[in-house]
Amino acid sequence: MILPALAFYLFAAVLVLSGMLVITARNPVHSVLFLILAFFNAAGLFVLIGAEFVAMILVIVYVGAVAVLFLFVVMMLDINFQELRKGFLRYLPAGLAVGAALLAELGLVISGWVYAGPADSVRAAPTPESVGNAQALGDLLYTQYAYVFEASGLVLLVAMIGAIVLTLRSRKGTRRQVIADQVSRRRDDVVAVVKVRTGEGV
């Protein structure tokens, strides 16, 4: 049982370290890269507690989409990060106070959980015994909640239609590829052989 413990401490240590580096790195691109590392390690922790579905979703959604989006934004926008960092010391006390409040709240939640006697016993089993949790979720999603699932699909469709309706415009002067035009071009129409004498130009 030493191996899972070892893996836990490895993932946890790297997670905390990369979390620190996200906010202290000077280069914003490095920050985003450390964020991705943090996500990967969090996913590793999820695998350790047997929630492989959440782990995969974390990698796919957060690393695959959110972090890459961040990276795009950071690289595309011309933000002066040195300028943003100027008030760091001035805001440090306020930031620490918020952090302390959060920590205290977390402590309360956890102690409430630990000292609530029956909470642990009435807690529903997170995963059924015989099937993996991706399969268990799928079983629920596509049978019992199929109605809501399909309806969510409609909601997403509306979001897509909305985005297109509100933003797509046909601008004047856009150049589109017309394959028929390209194919029907003949060499004679567009290429002319010209004899150029030296020193006279075309």
Binding site: Y145, Y147, V148, A151, S152, L154, V155, V158, A159, I161, G162, V165, L166
Partner: peptide
């Protein structure tokens, strides 16, 4: 659950047509 999903389907369509004259 179905209450919320139905409500969102309705609302999202309404947001878009409110801004239809973009």
């Amino acid at each position: 659950l179905s209450l919320y999903v139905g409500l969102e389907l309705q609302s999202l369509s309404l947001y878009v047509i409110a801004a239809f004259r973009r």
